[in-house]
Design a binder for these strands. Structure first.
Lengths: 276, 276
DNA sequence: ATAAAAGGTATTATGTTCAGGCCATTAATC
DNA sequence: GATTAATGGCCTGAACATAATACCTTTTAT
């Protein structure tokens, strides 16, 4: 379950001397290195770009769909239009959206891979891969935690919402329907924890893991992934309904390795054939 | 385990009509409300202030100790000295530190409550209490998750580090020693997950929960809390050593309710007797 | 008394964000 | 085909946060 994070085990186990030194440090209040590192703060534009990328990755806006207009986004996000433009410009730069002008203009989510996307994958993903592996691992754990809490807290209404999503998933025949049902199921599980902060955390993990690329079972990926996702969703639902926190947690941890698998596949594609 | 978050259950259960409408929404890709809300970004000064408050709350700097100088902090954090001053000014304003001038000057962590602190508690804590309850709940879950992962991943070296911290805790006779040992134990558990991102998440939760007030068993609190903490730490250690993820997780969730209990107590103090 | 080390203050420069207006482009509508 | 509306593209100026730098004041070790 989950991945083994990429921290190399210390080659030299602590000696007795080491241990007593540690003990002394603890007791004497010796020079503990303050856990303070460089501060880096997201600009508003970066934050907006992250949110939009996550919205696309989550399926809030499907391929071919249009994002809200610049003025509308500025109003929704409570930022200036210039900032929205800055953010959308980045989405365009990495090939997530395509800008159309004129009356029906706007930022449209691209349907397929572009050279810009592949190159963005190479530039963005490769250098940060070790960090990403850690984030995948953490996301598995977090989603397992969510499923555990859901199993212990879900109400009948929560279960009903999950069933609706599962039905939608099974009936879905188009890409969009599958994505929507997938998102609905995850949303229902999250909602059943009854804690909005948990929802925030989950979404934040998705943001950090996805970097704007469609990491959920979307896109041009192997249809087998959908089958796998559906089966796993059903199992997770059963565990949650049964109130079996252990089972739900384990299954969810397992389930979310799908994300890392797909990211690895994407990375392979981006390296293998540099076109789209 | 953990708290029941403050989300009132929906008074009206969904009807059959509701459910089919939901299903249609899922299948038709109906107007899904994009999960986009107003953007708010922390300033650098705020981020620095949060970090320093967390460092104090964690015990990196104990009461009576001096924080690094403004110039040094600016260097460590890679920000301008003006920003550091802005942040330290806030710590001073809420009574966390005391500024001394001259050659041995600097920001010294206050030992006891001040009127400024109590008033800051009233002004800051009260309005955000519902949100804080949600954060307490989430923190319980996260730390339970950490303990589970630790039980499954810990190495012999990790266990050794935990034992050292436990020994320090048992031997500690002064406030500072207890705090240091406490921090060391938590750090050891975190480290044993082998994933730096988990450490970040845990620290972030602490930051958001503490708001700069000493939420760990520090300060002038009931000595019983120390006993309780020591006993619980020992139990958690045993579960982690045994590799019993379930047990470790449950115990940790239980253990971290200490934080919310103490915050509630602090709130009571701040309301009850407005002096220090 | 002197020098060193710290906080306190002021100046200037830079980048980000906001607010507002105007232009260019496109497609729906008349 | 002309009009109009909705959109992205672009520009300016002000406000603000931050960085970089220098210099002053206070305190204490020497």
């Amino acid at each position: 379950m989950c991945n083994v994070p990429g921290v190399p085990p210390d080659a030299t186990p602590p000696t007795t001397d080491d241990l007593s030194r540690m003990l002394n440090q603890v007791l004497d209040g010796a020079p503990r290195p303050a856990a303070l590192g460089p501060v880096r703060v997201h600009s508003v534009a970066t934050e907006v770009a992250d949110r939009l990328m996550t919205a696309v990755a989550t399926g809030d806006y499907l391929p071919g769909e249009r994002l809200p207009g610049e003025r509308e986004l500025a109003s929704i996000l409570d930022v200036s239009r210039a900032t929205v433009r800055e953010a959308i410009g980045r989405l365009q730069a990495v090939g997530i959206v395509e800008i159309k002008r004129g009356r029906t203009g706007g930022a449209y989510v691209r349907t397929s891979w572009t050279e810009a996307t592949a190159s963005a994958v190479r530039r963005t993903l490769l250098p940060r891969w070790p960090e990403l592996e850690q984030l995948f691992d953490l996301r598995c754990l977090v989603e397992g935690m969510v499923a555990r809490a859901a199993a212990l807290r879900r109400t009948e209404e929560d279960l009903a919402a999950m069933r609706v999503a599962l039905d939608g998933y099974a009936r879905a025949r188009t890409l969009g329907e599958e994505q929507a049902a997938d998102a609905a199921f995850h949303a229902a599980v999250l909602a059943s924890t009854g804690n909005p902060k948990i929802v925030e955390l989950s979404r934040d993990m998705l943001t950090r893991v996805s970097l704007g690329f469609p990491v959920e079972p979307y896109g041009e990926d192997d249809p087998e992934d959908y089958q796998r996702a559906l089966i796993e969703h059903r199992k997770i639902y059963e565990a949650i309904e049964a109130g079996d926190a252990e089972q739900a947690g384990s299954l969810a941890e397992e389930h979310f390795t799908l994300t890392s698998d797909m990211m690895r596949a994407m990375l392979g594609r981006a390296q293998g054939r540099p076109s789209g």
